[in-house]
Amino acid sequence: MLLIQRHAPYQGQKAKSLLDIALVAAAFEHQPAMLFLGDGVYQLLTSKKLDTLSGFYPKGVQSTLTALPLYDIDTFYVDAEALNARQLAPDALSLPVTLLEPQQIRQLVRDTSWVITL
């Protein structure tokens, strides 16, 4: 099973919903791999944007993502091009990831029987 995150952490509820799917899958003894594409790579940054109106840090997916290894989910792929385009270094990310080139991403999706994205 492969879950593809394509959205920035505060871009609607999609990142959160897909993360919930991962947690539910883990409860049913499935350990999906996760692939971060495009703006989805921003989910792997730990820094949060302070909401200047409320003075609180909004609840995002970033903290919960780092708990996934405790749920036995520990395969994380990242689109290398997306990372480059945003000038992010792999070691700035909150989880140990495998970088994939576009060709490898196509191969991964082709080889996976269940792919979920929102």
């Binding site: 947690l23 883990a26 409860a27 609840k59 903290s63 919960t64 780092t66 708990a67 405790l70 749920y71 036995d72």
Partner: peptide
């Protein structure tokens, strides 16, 4: 502490690991 760190209430297995 788990909930503070990860912003999610622990289920049994992750809590046990933690």
């Amino acid at each position: 502490k788990f909930q503070q760190a990860y912003e999610v209430s622990p289920a049994t297995r992750p809590l046990a690991k933690y």
